[in-house]
Structure formats: C-alpha cells, structure tokens
Design a protein around this nucleic acid. Structure first.
Lengths: 228, 228
DNA sequence: GTCTATACCTCGATAGAC
DNA sequence: GTCTATCGAGGTATAGAC
C-alpha cells in the first residue's frame, strides 16, 4: 500500500528495454501514480517528472490524459487475460475441470500481482472514470468475463463444481475476491506458490472443516473472549 | 454502477429527518459523488449543488474538503461494524461457530449494501487518499479487522473451521470478497436473503461439489467449447 | 446559517523553438 | 522528440453582508 514502486514477484524485469522506451516509461509511472493517487489527483507534471521528461512531451506520445488512462486500463486486463489463457491452454486434453479452473486462478493471480500497478489501477479507477472512457473499456472487460463464464459453466455442467449457485454470482464473487488480493498481498510473507494454494483451497473447498468435530470445545481464553 | 442515487434494500428511510439535516445532506451527497467520481474529481460546488446549497456554505459544517472526506470514510466502516456486532451479540449463548460467522457475514453484507455510497466510497478511496487522512482512518479499520480476527480465531480453534490456512490471509480474503459485492450486487435479481445464503454457502463450503460425480461427461456443445 | 464575491493557485493543453 | 512559455478554465478556501 506504500506509494513506492512495486517489485515484480520473480526476479524478472518487466520491460525488454525495447524502442518506445519513453512511452513505456510514461505508462509505468502513470499506472503507479493513478493507482496510488487516483486519476484526477494525478497531474501530467507528476507523471512527466517520474518518467524523467517534461509535461509537454507527454503529448507527443499520447493525445490526452484520458487516452493515457485508456491504455493503462486496457493493459490492466490484458496482462491478466494473457496469463490465464496461457495456463489453461497448456493443460493436457484430459485435464479435469478442477485442474482447468485452478490453472485459471493461478494465471489470474500471477498476472494480477506481477503487474500490480496496472491491475490495481484498473480495479480502483474503473468505477470513477469519465463515462466515455468507461464505455470504451467495457468491451475488453466483457470479453474477459465471458471467458470465465465458459470455464465455470463447463465445470458446473461436468458435475465437478456445484451447480446450485447462480453462474454470474459465482463468477463476480470469485473474480472480485481474487482481484482484491492485489490490495493486500505481501510477497514477503511466503512464496507465491503457497499463496495460490491457500487461495485456491479456500475457494474450492470453503472455510468450514470437512469432517465436523464431535465436541467443539473452546479453550478458557477463547470462551472468555466470546462472552465479551 | 450508475451515478444515480442508490436505493436502500428494504423500504426503510435512512435519515430520521432530525436536526443537522443540512449537514447530513452534505454527507450523503458527498459520499455518492466521491463513490462515483473519486475524491479529487468531486468539487465542493457539485456537492453543494446536490445538497441544495452554495459551495461556501459547506464550510459552516466542515472545516475542509479533507475533513468531509474523513467523516464519509468513518461512516463507511461504522455502519457495517454496527450491523455485524448487533447480529453476533443477539445470538444465544450456545450458538455454533458456524452460526456466529454466518451472522457476521450477514451483518457485514447488510450494512455494506444498505449504505452503498458510504461503504463503496470507503473501499474505493482508501488507497488513493492523502496520507494524513489515511493515518487517521487506519485506526477504525484496524479495530474492525481485530473483531473479525477474534471471531475467526475462535471458529478455527473450535474445529468447526479449517485451521490449515493463515488467519490473516483468511480474514483479508473474506472481507475483501464480501466488500467487493457492493460493486456488483443487484437487488433486482433476487432477495437480499437469498443473496446472503448464496455467498455464505460459497465461502463456507466452496465451489467444488461435495460428492464427486463418477463420470464427469460434458455435453457435445460444452466439449466443443473446451476444445477451442 | 447561508449567501455573494473573489483571491490565489494549479491544472490540461497548445504553440513554436531547437 | 523534447523543450520552454503560456493561455484559459476551474479548483479550494475566505471575507463579510444579510
């Protein structure tokens, strides 16, 4: 939650140091500032400063602040979309529905946390941006939601997943829950792999113990707290 | 997600038409505009307009825009906190851990959705506000988190809830998942009661079927989609 | 308590030199 | 491609009448 630059999960650099380097720099700094300050509170002068240029120069690369926002928003979806599809499509033909959804969850979390400034900016800002920007961006959001709907529909139709909850409710709840991890995930408190396993385990099997304990006794300390 | 006024779930009016009516009006409109436009993008002129007064008059009730934000933020927590504690404390002494957590979830969702402009504003803005406002507000957030930690700790210690996931991870994931429902919940697609039951069922028992089907066969249509 | 009027500041965006 | 310089608009906040 600190306004510093976020580190990638693995020791892999983000940018290939390619051409368009300045443009990419602007995007990276814009995403970071949009995430932590909001859209309106972030000035082009701040972005330019962070990118090592002057404010006027941004207009060589982007037509307006709104257009810059649009690109940040789209990237926030596409980096996640990419990781999800890569993992699901790499699965063998005979993979179970559970394996398929687990691969999608891992991909979603990986893309989400690896590019936290873009994905968090997307999540935080989408509800607050001008209507025009929202309408344009809605299309890529819808496409990503459709992909998940198909995945979950198959999982429910197969019998591996429960079919007694509404598909849209399930998808919205799941994606929302996963998305919010970018707001509190701390890479210093364990490996990414163990994090994914914990999250997947909770959403697959729930919080309740599988085999109910016969006599659920509380310790004296906890019994006292419960009374309070 | 539309910028219109949100309706309460039940047919219960929010305000008791008390004194301080103007101050309350300012708060309600500020929460609504902060939620949908963000903090910086919302002007005091807009808030005043919506409240039926002039911008300068706001300063009779609040010392600054930042102070107004602080009050909106605090209310976003306290309305939820109130509903949770009311329900948990109304439970009989012998209530199970499952019943206690279920009551907390229902209270959280009720407060959250009943006062959507305040709670959504809180959730959306917390990561974007000036550091000073954040530091003040952090205290009430911490207290609410502590309440949940105690609740979940008891549930895990009793054996009714799984103890093989980290407490903080579980609490952050659960609260985050619940909170995000305010961004997509639609009261027109079913009763609040059935919504709570669906959500509670998912987080308690998970998405996976309890009794695995022996031969998970897909229909021809779904098999084709999976291939693509 | 609410109004009008306004001071002062900073923003996004543009023009033109280099 | 990036710079400097600047325009016009619109923001928070304050002062003082009513």
């Amino acid at each position: 939650m600190s306004p510093r630059r976020s580190r990638p999960i693995a020791a892999v650099a983000d940018a290939p140091a390619a051409p368009e380097a300045t443009r990419d720099q602007i995007l990276v700094e814009a995403a970071r500032l949009f995430r932590h300050q909001g859209y309106a509170a972030t000035t082009l002068r701040q972005i330019a400063d962070a990118a090592g240029i002057k404010a006027g120069s941004i207009y060589y690369h982007f037509g307006s602040k709104d257009e810059l926002l649009g690109v940040v928003l789209d990237q926030g979806i596409s980096v996640v979309d990419l990781e999800v599809k890569r993992r699901v499509e790499a699965l063998p033909k005979g993979a179970s529905q559970r394996e398929r959804v687990a691969a999608a969850i891992e991909g979603h979390l990986f893309g989400l946390l690896q590019h936290g400034d873009f994905t968090s900016a997307n999540i935080r800002l989408y509800g607050q941006i001008p209507l025009a920007a929202k309408n344009k961006h809605r299309i890529v959001r819808r496409a990503y939601a459709d992909y998940w709907d198909k995945l979950l529909e198959q999982a429910m139709a197969s019998g591996e997943f429960r079919a007694d909850v509404n598909l849209a409710v399930l998808r919205l709840f799941l994606i929302g829950a996963l998305n919010w991890t970018v707001e509190w995930y701390n890479p210093q408190r364990g490996t990414f792999k163990s994090f994914v396993q914990q999250i997947t385990s909770i959403v697959f099997d729930g919080m309740v113990s599988r085999e109910p304990v016969a006599a659920p006794r509380l310790s004296r300390k906890l019994r006292k707290e419960q009374g309070a």
